[in-house]
């Protein structure tokens, strides 16, 4: 049997055939996964007339950039974008802060009912959001913040899952480090800020990405709390645009492409951290 040399390695013919079959299946799958995105982009550059033809074409006669400039006249993209940024940055900052501090408390401080309280945190992690949304809505109505961004910013400032994640990380750090600092007269908060927090970089990054993605893409919570258009976040704005301009597909696809862009760029820049961050959501749900 002759062996085949390819890609700097040597394969037997059988291995080579298996490899080719693998690639064919994977490529076909990849194309299926990408097709909706390609179709979205291709439609976003067509004129309205070119969209309503059958059979459909992949490319229009020329690239219609106007679809992208038309977005702003139909869709307050910039406002929704800024609302989304505001909510996401706030939620990520507070969630990281409260989770890290509480995670430290659960892993390092001695206090009564520590294990019992932590058990409660664990138990609520699997509770679907649909179970808590109604009392939370009533609560937000009571505070008078429904229809403002505050209703999206206040409840997620604390996360049981984030607390759990930080605690798990701090438990892996050897205690000798903080014992030494304690002898030097460091307070628990000092140990947290100076010793444990600087070590938690990758866990914090993972949690930050996970939290940002969830907040940025969230549709359900804004749907419940926000009905005034000026307070829409990007997902809600896009869904609203679909409702009112359901036939102008090119502009709609242009707006959709733009809405995906920020997360897409972040994903391509930090693929590994993203993958890690999203894999965590499995533990959460």
């Amino acid at each position: 049997m002759t062996n085949i040399h390819a890609f700097g390695r040597t394969y037997t013919p059988k291995q080579m055939i298996l490899r080719i079959i693998s690639h064919v299946i994977l490529l076909f799958g990849a194309l299926t996964m990408l097709m909706p995105f390609i179709w979205m982009l291709s439609t976003s550059f067509k004129s309205l007339g070119e969209v309503f033809v059958f059979p459909p074409t992949m490319f229009g006669e020329r690239i219609v950039w106007e679809n992208y400039t038309k977005i702003s006249s139909r869709f307050d993209y910039f406002r929704y974008f800024m609302n989304s940024i505001k909510v996401s940055v706030w939620v990520v900052a507070f969630q990281l802060f409260t989770s890290a501090m509480a995670g430290f408390a659960f892993s390092r401080l001695q206090f009564r009912f520590r294990e019992q309280i932590f058990l409660l945190y664990l138990a609520t992690m699997m509770v679907p959001i649909h179970v808590t949304i109604i009392p939370n809505f009533i609560q937000m109505t009571f505070y008078g913040v429904v229809n403002t961004l505050w209703s999206l910013m206040i409840p997620p400032m604390v996360s049981a899952f984030g607390t759990f994640l930080m605690r798990q990380f701090f438990l892996t750090v050897p205690r000798e480090l903080d014992e030494a600092a304690k002898i030097d007269g460091c307070t628990p908060f000092g140990i947290f800020i100076r010793i444990l927090l600087p070590m938690a970089g990758s866990t914090i990054a993972t949690l930050a990405i996970f939290c940002f993605m969830n907040t940025w893409n969230d549709y359900f919570t804004p749907l419940i709390y926000i009905s005034e258009q000026r307070q829409y976040t990007l997902p809600l704005g896009l869904a609203g645009m679909k409702g009112s301009y359901s036939t102008d597909w090119p502009v709609l696809m242009a707006a959709t492409s733009l809405s995906i862009l920020p997360v897409l760029v972040a994903f391509l820049l930090a693929q590994d951290a993203f993958v890690k961050g999203i894999m965590l959501s499995g533990m959460k749900d």
Binding site: A30, Y219, L252
Partner: peptide, 20 residues
């Protein structure tokens, strides 16, 4: 990256494209 792309995309964007 390709297979993971739909997972990072918001359900709203996904729904709009699939409706089309």
């Amino acid at each position: 990256a390709v297979y993971f792309l739909p997972s990072i995309t918001s359900m709203v964007a996904v729904a709009v494209v699939w409706q089309w």
